[in-house]
Design a protein around this nucleic acid. Structure first.
Length: 156
DNA sequence: GCCAACGTTGGC
DNA sequence: GCCAACGTTGGC
């Protein structure tokens, strides 16, 4: 059973365009336990929305596929990384990451404002909860379908 | 740039 | 264990 997720990224830091060029990437730098736990729950083959945050028009812009399950995030133990965490050790890496691959671009972006305006999403979607900051979050299959439809995308 | 909401830290 | 203070996120 495929599960669905949403990955936030600031396009200035790492954009969906960049992922398309790269083909795949390691989702490094998550330093929130709930977001980490969501990654630990992911299985290879799961799909996720790629969401652009902290930008002029925040929006879901594409779809990624999980191609490697959670494993230790090496940036936590890299003294030179901005994501360095002195508590992380080889025995207890604390922070993990998944690898994701470019799957496809949405026919058109679905903006945060559009999602918020959709009563079928507003009540339940984690992204739309007041004060929601979770950078890796679950998406209910029902929500997944609705957002895909809003993007003008045929069901996969 | 502002600020509400959140997660984390640390004093007690 | 509580909670105030702080730093960060992220929409607006």
């Amino acid at each position: 059973m495929t599960a669905y997720w949403l990955f936030k990224s600031e396009p200035d830091a790492y954009s969906f365009d960049q992922l398309e060029k790269d083909g795949h990437t390691e989702w490094t730098g998550v330093r929130n336990f709930q977001a980490r736990n969501n990654m630990k729950a992911m299985k290879v083959g799961d799909l996720g929305f790629f969401y652009h945050s902290s930008t002029k028009v925040p929006a879901a812009v594409g779809i990624v596929k999980v191609v490697r399950a959670a494993h230790p995030d090496p940036t936590a133990r890299d003294r030179k990384s901005e994501y360095f965490d002195p508590r992380a050790t080889a025995d207890n890496p604390i922070w993990e990451m998944v690898d994701v691959a470019f799957e496809r671009r949405l026919p058109r972006p679905v903006t945060l404002a559009e999602m918020r305006a959709n009563p079928d999403l507003a009540a339940t979607m984690v992204l739309l909860r007041k004060g929601s900051r979770l950078s890796v979050q679950p998406v209910h299959p029902r929500e997944w379908k609705i957002v895909l439809a809003m993007a003008g995308s045929p069901a996969p």
